[in-house]
Nucleic acid binder design. Structure first.
Lengths: 144, 144
DNA sequence: CTATATTAGGATAAATTTGTCCTAAATGAT
DNA sequence: ATCATTTAGGACAAATTTATCCTAATATAG
């Protein structure tokens, strides 16, 4: 469904959000360890998320990544996915047709539209705060 | 969502189903032309579908691919997807965790379960016949 | 101010997916 | 029976995604 990069990105960002709620900035090293993702690859992803105003990054000793309290509430899963995987998951035709729309649909167009709309709604309705809180309470986990 | 191979596979199979309804066996060449897919690559996919008892193939002059009337009704989209992409779309964790389940879920586990269940239901409920008929009536299209 | 820790970012490698090419095997047409 | 046509299938090439490595830039601690 999502690319590996996106999976890592969501896991990492959820971890960062949790630590930001505790007022802790976290380093790439800690993130990739806690999330079980390859460090250098994770660096690229976090860099991209920072460019997209999803994370704040700070260089130097005691540097790392963090998210402001306000952003933890306003950032939705949909924003992460968009920043990493682009909008293909929302836009693209289920059968890969370049021009597929309601007036010239592929055979699965309408059935897919339903599913995709629900996916979109779910992603747009899920905030980082929600994800981080489930982690905090120990309900959910991030490590493979 | 699906691999390119799966997209081509679904498009090709839908076309074969339509022609089989008209009692026509179709060659790889015609299929890849009508569906807009690379011929040699499509050959591999059709071969795999044949091995999985989704298509019947015949060599030699006037050979090609076809599907029995009965199978056109019993084969569901879910069977195609399973044969080509495996069960990762049904089974795998949305965030790529190896062991993610209801008792030790990832942060998006339950929200994804809902979507995936609906996707599964849709795929299992959509027959080749249905897809082919929408093509027949000109409601839907297959070419990029 | 200096040394050190940390992110930024380019180059490159490995793995996977997608796509091509060619020969073998089979089968129907003649 | 022979030949042309078509699928089967292996080898390989290209493209994309995933992953690693190294140096530069930068900020903080001391």
């Amino acid at each position: 469904m999502f690319s590996k990069a996106c999976e890592y990105g969501i896991r990492a960002t959820t971890f960062i959000a949790l630590q930001s709620l505790r007022n802790r900035r976290v380093s790439l090293k800690e993130i990739s360890q806690e999330v079980g993702s390859p460090m250098a690859f994770t660096a690229k992803i976090l860099h991209q998320l920072a460019k997209n105003d999803i994370l704040e990054s700070t260089k130097g000793p005691s540097g790392g990544f963090q998210i402001s309290m306000e952003r933890i509430h306003t950032i939705k899963l949909a924003d992460l996915v968009l920043a990493i995987d682009g909008n293909s998951i929302y836009e693209g035709c289920g059968l890969g047709l370049r021009k597929c729309n309601a007036s010239k649909p592929c055979p699965v167009h309408f059935k897919f539209s339903v599913i995709r709309k629900e996916l979109k709604t779910m992603l747009q309705g899920t905030s980082l705060f929600e994800l981080a809180q489930d982690l905090e309470t120990g309900v959910t986990h991030l490590k493979r």
